[in-house]
């Protein structure tokens, strides 16, 4: 039976923990339904991550190595045009034999790609997932086994960062305004390109969510950017009030029931 659900209900960390503890083998497919769309497919063998594909594409080795900075796009194009081979394993061997990369470069590159793919998934707040047991990646792919324990710890850190940002900026449906605090020293502030883009949209009509949608950044990224602008003293948002928690009265514990009574209940239940 396939494990199915939504990341809103069972977080990625919980899922990875389940796969890790139960030493599961199979493929986890996640279809992002929050913020920017996307689809990821992660493969596991005996509780370890071995392969990942993002956006429905099984990335070729050259693409993977470009993404993690082991090859330039020109080098990747040259390798692909020269190589008359079909599989990533043959492609990797060719690059090693030509002295372009060594085996460690390739393994480390594939591993970094796996990690970055999964870290991206930690920012997805919702998405249908399905775990198909015993499904493995295509034969021709290079697989590298990555232990999930460190990945889960780093994922937890990122989730904590996300939660901190969400606490700091709970409502995205509010507009931003430039801070009028007189103590802000604007001379020492350096903004990133992303922050400048957000700043250019600040006015009373644009909510944070609308800015994020226009710039095609997800909720995690927009919160990070706006939080950076807030802490720099550049912008303010309207605060929202938290609902008050209901006090819980302690329940009176049961009078201890003796073993004799319990054994009578057990005996009766067995016979009904």
């Amino acid at each position: 039976m396939a494990l199915k659900g939504n990341l809103r209900d069972v977080g990625l960390n919980q899922l990875l923990n389940l796969i890790y503890l139960a030493h599961k083998t199979g493929a986890l497919t996640v279809q992002n339904d929050s913020g920017s769309a996307g689809k990821a497919r992660l493969y596991f063998k005996e509780g370890r991550l071995i392969h990942a594909a993002l956006d429905g594409q099984e990335a070729r080795l050259t693409d993977v190595l470009v993404k993690v900075g082991k090859l330039t796009p020109d080098q990747a194009r040259a390798v692909r045009s020269r190589a008359k081979v079909d599989t990533d394993k043959e492609l990797g061997l060719l690059m090693i034999q030509s002295g372009m990369l060594n085996q460690n470069d390739i393994i480390q590159g594939v591993k970094n790609y796996l990690l970055e793919t999964v870290y991206q998934l930690f920012t997805w707040r919702g998405g249908q997932f399905r775990f198909e047991a015993n499904e493995l990646p295509p034969e021709e792919r290079i697989t590298v086994a990555v232990s999930l324990d460190h990945l889960i710890i780093e994922g937890s850190r990122r989730v904590q960062e996300w939660e901190h940002l969400r606490d700091e900026l709970p409502d995205l449906d509010v507009p931003l305004r430039f801070s009028d605090r007189p103590d802000t020293n604007l001379r020492n502030i350096n903004l990133s390109v992303e922050q400048w883009k957000v700043v250019s949209f600040i006015n009373a009509r644009n909510t944070i969510r609308q800015i994020a949608n226009f710039l095609k950044v997800d909720e995690f990224q927009i919160r990070r950017i706006v939080y950076g602008l807030q802490t720099a003293g550049l912008v303010d948002v309207m605060p929202t009030a938290a609902p008050a928690a209901r006090p819980v009265a302690p329940v009176v514990p049961a009078e201890p029931v003796g073993r004799g009574v319990l054994l009578r209940v057990i005996d009766r239940l067995r016979r009904i």
């Binding site: 003796g258 319990l262 239940l269």
Partner: peptide, 24 residues
């Protein structure tokens, strides 16, 4: 299913029994 529910209640009773005081 009655048998399934019985099993659950019996398991709960065994857990309760573990911490139950001896009869005086």
């Amino acid at each position: 299913k009655k048998e399934s529910v019985k099993e659950i209640l019996l398991e709960l009773l065994y857990v309760i029994l573990e911490s139950a005081p001896e009869d005086k």
